[in-house]
């Protein structure tokens, strides 16, 4: 039996537009996704902002009722058996919300321990253990409002693990963390995987999914566009090379013009302080460089390199450069 089984799951939101002549508008957020996650697997759900990752996790954690399809956690239906699902899952949502800032870490955990019906004798041992595990023992008696973002995120993890759930949902857990904080948190996730927890991790950091997940599904505009192991997804872009050109002050119209070149599949621009890094996906490899440089005529250029595609490049191909 799969730990998580999702069949054609859908969710629409209703919104209103206009002030005087208000009209209802249906916005589809998740358009029928299906996947299965085996017990003890760490599965990644990748996608850009607004792709439907958080909505999917909220449905699976019983916070939202789907408008279509079904899903089962450990064989239990997320709508009809919601009360039986809840003690067996843990979840954290990215960001700093979801904690009591005017309380300290210990009191936050004591409160949630009671909500999960933990025996006081058990929670007395479990809370210090979890605080130690997430590295908050020394700050446990300080109010959460004085914590850094990374510390709050680690407290979220401790909260989610209080009742030792079999299945964990981690929605963008490293969002907004500094590199050191993010690395520590990834190590915590690895440790959880070693404990054979089933984990659904959503992220838009490709290297994170590559480093942690056994399988990933790429979700875009509410639909799963690919699902495989990270290495197989990378194989799907073996026909491509990536040309990286450092350029100073590239105008948007030049980027648009490069996109129209026949040998170019995708173009993206990353800001790097004073310069931009132009990333061009092309099947021609280094042969494309002269033509690309001619298109950038008149602009100050830095380093020009070619490299093998990564999972991020596979992702960019799948989500169409978004």
């Amino acid at each position: 039996m799969s730990a998580i089984e999702v069949i054609n799951l859908q969710r629409e939101f209703q919104t209103t537009i206009g002030v005087f002549n208000r009209k209802k508008k249906i916005v589809p957020a998740v358009k029928g996704i299906s996947f299965e996650i085996a017990g003890g697997e760490l599965f990644g759900l990748l996608g850009p902002n607004g792709a439907g990752k958080t909505t999917s996790v909220k449905m699976l954690t019983t916070l939202l009722i789907p408008t279509g399809g079904t899903a089962k956690i450990l064989g239990l239906d997320i709508v009809n058996d919601a009360e039986a699902v809840r003690p067996r899952i843990g979840f954290i949502f990215g960001g700093e919300r979801g904690l009591y800032w005017r309380l300290n870490a210990t009191d936050n955990l004591r409160y949630f321990a009671s909500l999960y019906y933990l025996d006081p004798a058990v929670s007395k041992k479990r809370i210090p253990y979890l605080l130690e595990m997430v590295g908050l023992t020394d700050r446990a008696d300080e109010k959460v409002e004085g914590y850094s973002r990374g510390m709050r995120q680690r407290l979220h993890i401790a909260r989610a693990l209080l009742h030792d759930p079999e299945v964990l949902f981690l929605d963008e857990p490293t969002m907004g963390l500094d590199p050191v904080g993010a690395r520590e948190l990834r190590q915590t996730v690895r440790n959880l995987q070693d404990e054979k927890k089933t984990i659904l991790l959503t992220t838009h950091y490709m290297f994170e999914a590559d480093a942690l997940c056994q399988r990933v599904a790429v979700i875009n505009k509410g639909e799963i566009v690919a699902m495989d192991t990270p290495s197989k997804l990378k194989d799907s872009v073996n026909d491509l090379s990536v040309v990286e050109i450092e350029v100073f002050g590239i105008p948007p119209e030049t980027v648009e013009k490069i996109k129209t070149l026949s040998m170019v599949e995708n173009v993206s621009v990353e800001d790097r302080d004073q310069l931009q890094l132009l990333l061009v996906h092309t099947s021609k490899g280094a042969e494309a460089i002269p033509l690309l440089i001619s298109e950038l005529n008149g602009l100050k250029l830095g380093k020009v390199t070619t490299r093998e595609p990564t999972l991020e490049d596979a992702y960019v191909r799948l989500v169409g450069g978004e």
């Binding site: 916070l63 979801g98 800032w101 909500l115 019906y117």
Partner: peptide
């Protein structure tokens, strides 16, 4: 507002008790 209503609502303990 603080995002705690969600974890309270889907904890095993009834929200009425809280």
């Amino acid at each position: 507002w603080t995002g705690t209503l969600e974890p309270l609502s889907c904890a095993p303990a009834p929200l009425r008790a809280v």
